[in-house]
Amino acid sequence: MPTFALPFPAIDPVLVQLGPLAIRWYALAYIAGLVLGWLLARALVARPALWGGTSPMTPQDLDDALFWATLGVILGGRLGYVLFYNPAYFAANPQDIVAVWKGGMSFHGGLAGTLVALVMFARSRGIRVMSLLDVSGVVAPLGLFFGRLANFINGELWGRPADVPWAIVFPHGGPEPRHPSQLYEAALEGIVLFLIMLLVVRLGGLKRPGVAAGIFGIGYGVSRIIGEFFREPDVQLGYLAFGTTMGMWLSVPLVVAGAGLLLYALKRKPAA
C-alpha cells in the first residue's frame, strides 16, 4: 500500500438546490454530451464533401434525432442496468425501476436503446441508417467523456485498490486508496476515442457508410475492457469466470459487431 494517497476532491454532486429541485452534475453531464454531440453532428452533415458530395441528412433531421436519441439513452440505459447488473433487486422492488434519480445506468443498455431509436427514426425519415449511426459514432465519445467525469464527481464506480501515487480514497469506497478508474475511462473512451473518430472523418470514413460506426464499436469495446482491469466490479455481481467482469462480457459482442460492420463497409465502394 502507498505511504500516502490523494484525498477525494470535495465536490458536491448537487450543483444547485432550489427547494425540492436539485440540479446535479450527473444530469448536466448528460445534457452537455447530448448538446455538444448534436452541434458537432450538425457541423458534419453541413459539409457535403465529407460524405462524397451529398449529405445523407439535413441539420433539421438531427434536431429531431436528438429527441429520439435522448429517449434511447435514458430508457435503454436504465433497462440495461436493471437486466444486466441488478435483476434480483428490481424483481423484488419493481417500483424502483423508474427511480433513475437514485442512480444506476448501463452504457451498453443506453447504446442498445439509442441504436433502436435511431434506426426507427432513420426509417421513418428515409435516411440511410448506416450514415446516421456513423454520425452517432463520431459524436458519442463526447457524452462518454462528460459521463465519466460525472461518475468521478459522484464518487461512484471507483477503481480497484491500488498503490500508485495518484490513488484516491473515495468517500464510499472503504479506507483503501483506489485507482481513479473513472478518469482512466474518461481518457480512453472520451479523449482517445474522440481523436480516433475525428481521424476517421479526416481520412474520408464517412464516405463509406458503416466505417465510423464499426470503428466506434471496436474502439469503445476495447477501451471499456481495458478500463475494467482497473475498475471495481459492481458489488452485487463481483468477479465472474476467470476474473472477468460484466462490463468485459458486454463489451465483447460490441467489438465483434463493430469488426463485422467495418469489414462489410470496407467491401463496399465509397461514395463518388
Results as ranks from 00 to 15, higher is better:
T114V: 15
L115G: 15
V116G: 07
V116Q: 03
V116H: 08
V116E: 03
A117N: 14
L118V: 14
L118N: 06
V119P: 14
M120E: 08
M120R: 15
F121K: 10
A122H: 11
A122F: 10
R123N: 10
S124M: 03
R125G: 06
I127A: 02
I127C: 04
I127M: 00
R128V: 14
R128F: 11
M130H: 08
M130L: 15
M130V: 00
M130N: 12
L133W: 01
S136I: 04
G137D: 05
V138Q: 09
V138Y: 07
V139C: 08
A140E: 09
A140K: 06
A140N: 10
P141H: 04
L142N: 04
F145H: 03
F145R: 00
F146W: 13
F146Q: 03
L149V: 15
A150M: 09
A150Q: 05
N151L: 05
I153D: 04
I153L: 06
I153M: 02
I153Q: 05
N154M: 06
N154F: 02
N154G: 09
N154T: 07
G155Q: 07
E156R: 14
E156C: 13
W158M: 02
W158I: 06
W158T: 03
G159L: 10
R160D: 07
R160T: 15
P161R: 05
A162I: 08
D163F: 08
V164A: 13
V164G: 05
W166P: 11
W166T: 10
W166F: 15
W166I: 11
A167F: 03
I168L: 04
F170P: 08
P171E: 08
H172C: 01
G173D: 01
G173S: 05
G173M: 07
G174A: 05
G174N: 09
P175H: 02
P175W: 01
E176M: 12
E176C: 00
P177F: 02
H179Y: 15
P180K: 06
S181G: 13
Q182T: 12
Q182K: 02
L183N: 06
Y184M: 13
E185Q: 13
A186I: 13
A186P: 08
A187Y: 11
A187M: 15
L188D: 00
L188Q: 02
E189Y: 13
G190V: 03
I191R: 00
I191A: 09
I191S: 00
V192M: 13
L193Y: 10
F194I: 03
L195W: 14
L195Y: 13
L195M: 12
L195N: 11
I196P: 11
M197S: 01
L198Q: 14
L198D: 07
V200I: 15
V200T: 07
V201L: 08
R202E: 07
R202K: 15
R202W: 11
R202L: 12
L203D: 12
G205N: 02
L206C: 04
R208D: 00
R208W: 02
P209T: 00
P209C: 05
G210Q: 03
G210D: 00
V211I: 12
V211A: 06
V211F: 11
A213N: 02
G214R: 06
I215G: 05
F216N: 09
